[in-house]
């Protein structure tokens, strides 16, 4: 018996990322902006998407794939506002591309400008998985503390937009919007930031404008913001 060393030197997720890139290219060709939304549980991802759908009602078309460990509660909240498919991970802590692809089959013929993928509430594992998105968004709520970005550097490093949510609670919590944005920019200097109250439907236009800009850029150039490394 002899031994042979095979040199590889490849990211374990390279193949998955390539599949994600192929799907992203298809969405680019169709002019659909794909947005992957990550946050801790309870930061307000679903409420933000409800507010987004209300803001755009009749003007922009959106569809949603929403991931959770269990239940279809989020889909029930979103379905009256936009075509929505619930993805249940059966306990897994993040979404991966095959689950997204299965959800897309169930959504059927997509007629929309924006496809949102609401990830499982978790700021660790989802950060490693490319779901074919053009834009990665982190929702950070004011009740979580403004020191969170440095605790989850990968999620912040790989995101293009930071949404600070629950600004209506600012008088009651020790949270500085400026400190949170500064902390995030130590990790990702290009991150765009908006502060909203999704629950009160406040400043949702700022967030929607960022998405509309990204969508216009996608249609014009076939590229959007920049994929961060």
């Amino acid at each position: 018996m002899t031994q042979q060393i095979i040199s590889v030197g490849r990211d374990v997720l390279a193949k998955a990322r390539q599949s994600a890139q192929e799907l992203r290219d298809e969405f680019t060709r169709r002019g659909i902006l794909v947005v992957n939304i990550m946050s801790s549980p309870g930061a307000g991802k679903t409420t933000l998407l409800q507010a987004t759908a209300r803001h755009w009602q009749g003007r922009r078309k959106m569809a949603v794939l929403v991931g959770d460990l269990a239940t279809d509660r989020d889909a029930q909240r979103l379905a009256p506002l936009a075509p929505t498919i619930q993805l249940t991970t059966g306990g897994a802590c993040h979404l991966e591309l095959p689950l997204v692809e299965r959800g897309l089959e169930r959504l059927g013929e997509l007629d929309c400008d924006f496809l949102f993928i609401e990830n499982v509430g978790n700021l660790v594992c989802p950060a490693s998985h490319d779901l074919s998105e053009h834009v990665r968004v982190i929702v950070l709520s004011t009740t979580e503390g403004d020191d969170k970005p440095a605790k989850y550097p990968k999620a912040f490093r790989t995101s293009q937009i930071l949404v600070i949510n629950k600004t209506d609670l600012l008088p009651h919590v020790p949270f500085s919007v400026e400190a949170a944005i500064n902390d995030a920019r130590q990790i990702q200097p290009r991150i765009r930031a908006v502060a909203v109250s999704a629950h009160r439907q406040e400043h949702i236009a700022d967030w929607c404008n960022l998405l509309e800009e990204a969508h216009a850029e996608l249609r014009a150039t076939g590229q959007v913001l920049s994929q961060n490394r």
Partner: peptide, 9 residues
């Protein structure tokens, strides 16, 4: 990163 694999041949 997968750096290398040693095989028994």
């Amino acid at each position: 990163r997968l750096v290398s694999v040693t095989l028994q041949t």
